[in-house]
Amino acid sequence: TEKEKEVKRLAKERGLSPDQVRELAQRAGFSPDQAKQIADEFA
């Protein structure tokens, strides 16, 4: 999704850790499970 792409782009730009990616995703409105899946891509 657009929102997911945006979260991943920000995460890459900022060099976020997987935990930070998960927090960012949840703040963007993703469920905890979705946020974990997104964060796992950065693990």
Results as ranks from 00 to 15, higher is better:
Thr1Asp: 13
Thr1Lys: 15
Thr1Pro: 13
Thr1Gln: 14
Thr1Trp: 13
Thr1His: 13
Glu2Pro: 09
Glu2Ser: 12
Glu2Asp: 13
Glu2Cys: 12
Glu2Trp: 14
Glu2Leu: 12
Lys3Glu: 08
Lys3Gly: 09
Lys3Thr: 08
Glu4Thr: 10
Glu4Gly: 08
Glu4Arg: 15
Glu4Asp: 06
Glu4His: 09
Lys5Pro: 01
Lys5Val: 10
Lys5Ser: 11
Glu6His: 08
Glu6Cys: 13
Glu6Phe: 10
Glu6Ser: 05
Glu6Gly: 04
Glu6Thr: 08
Val7Ser: 01
Val7His: 02
Val7Glu: 01
Lys8Trp: 08
Lys8Ser: 03
Arg9Gln: 10
Arg9Asp: 06
Arg9Ala: 07
Arg9Ser: 05
Leu10Gln: 09
Leu10Pro: 00
Leu10Arg: 05
Leu10Ser: 04
Leu10Cys: 08
Leu10Lys: 07
Ala11Ile: 03
Ala11Val: 01
Ala11Asp: 01
Ala11Arg: 00
Lys12Trp: 13
Lys12Gln: 10
Lys12Met: 09
Lys12Leu: 10
Lys12Gly: 06
Glu13Cys: 10
Glu13Leu: 14
Glu13Asn: 05
Glu13Val: 10
Arg14Tyr: 15
Arg14Ser: 09
Arg14Gly: 12
Arg14Leu: 15
Arg14Met: 15
Arg14Gln: 15
Arg14Ala: 14
Gly15Met: 08
Gly15Trp: 05
Gly15Val: 04
Gly15Tyr: 05
Leu16Asp: 04
Leu16Asn: 03
Leu16Phe: 06
Leu16Thr: 01
Leu16Ile: 03
Leu16Trp: 06
Leu16Pro: 01
Leu16Val: 01
Leu16His: 04
Ser17Leu: 08
Ser17Phe: 07
Ser17Gln: 08
Ser17Asn: 14
Ser17Met: 06
Ser17Val: 05
Pro18Val: 11
Pro18Trp: 15
Pro18Leu: 08
Pro18Lys: 11
Pro18Asn: 07
Pro18Ile: 12
Pro18Phe: 13
Pro18Tyr: 15
Asp19Ala: 14
Asp19Ile: 09
Asp19Pro: 09
Asp19Cys: 05
Asp19Tyr: 08
Asp19Gly: 07
Asp19Lys: 12
Gln20Ser: 05
Gln20Ala: 08
Gln20Ile: 04
Gln20Asp: 08
Val21Ser: 01
Val21Leu: 12
Val21His: 00
Val21Ala: 06
Val21Asn: 00
Arg22Asn: 09
Glu23Arg: 08
Glu23Ala: 11
Glu23Gly: 05
Glu23Gln: 12
Glu23Met: 11
Glu23Pro: 00
Leu24Ala: 07
Leu24Lys: 01
Leu24Pro: 00
Leu24His: 03
Leu24Ile: 05
Ala25Lys: 00
Ala25Pro: 00
Ala25Gln: 00
Ala25Ser: 03
Ala25Ile: 02
Gln26Ala: 10
Gln26Met: 15
Gln26Asn: 05
Gln26Val: 15
Gln26Pro: 03
Arg27Ile: 13
Arg27Phe: 09
Arg27Asn: 13
Arg27His: 12
Ala28Cys: 14
Ala28His: 15
Ala28Asn: 09
Ala28Tyr: 15
Ala28Gly: 04
Ala28Glu: 11
Ala28Val: 14
Gly29Val: 00
Phe30Met: 04
Phe30Gly: 00
Phe30Lys: 00
Phe30Ile: 04
Phe30Cys: 04
Ser31Asp: 11
Ser31His: 06
Ser31Met: 05
Ser31Val: 03
Ser31Trp: 04
Ser31Asn: 09
Pro32Ile: 11
Pro32Glu: 10
Pro32Ser: 09
Pro32Asn: 07
Pro32Lys: 08
Pro32Arg: 08
Asp33Pro: 05
Asp33Gln: 14
Asp33Thr: 13
Gln34His: 11
Gln34Ser: 05
Gln34Glu: 14
Lys36His: 10
Lys36Arg: 13
Lys36Tyr: 07
Lys36Pro: 01
Gln37Pro: 00
Gln37Leu: 12
Gln37Gly: 06
Gln37Glu: 07
Gln37Lys: 15
Ile38Trp: 02
Ile38Tyr: 03
Ile38Glu: 02
Ile38His: 03
Ile38Gln: 02
Ile38Leu: 11
Ile38Phe: 04
Ala39Thr: 03
Ala39Phe: 02
Asp40Ile: 12
Glu41Ala: 13
Glu41Leu: 06
Glu41Gln: 11
Glu41Cys: 02
Glu41His: 06
Glu41Ser: 12
Glu41Lys: 06
Phe42Leu: 11
Phe42Trp: 14
Phe42Lys: 01
Phe42Pro: 01
Phe42Val: 11
Phe42Asp: 02
Ala43Glu: 14
Ala43Met: 12
Ala43Trp: 12
Ala43Gln: 10
Ala43Phe: 14
Ala43Pro: 04
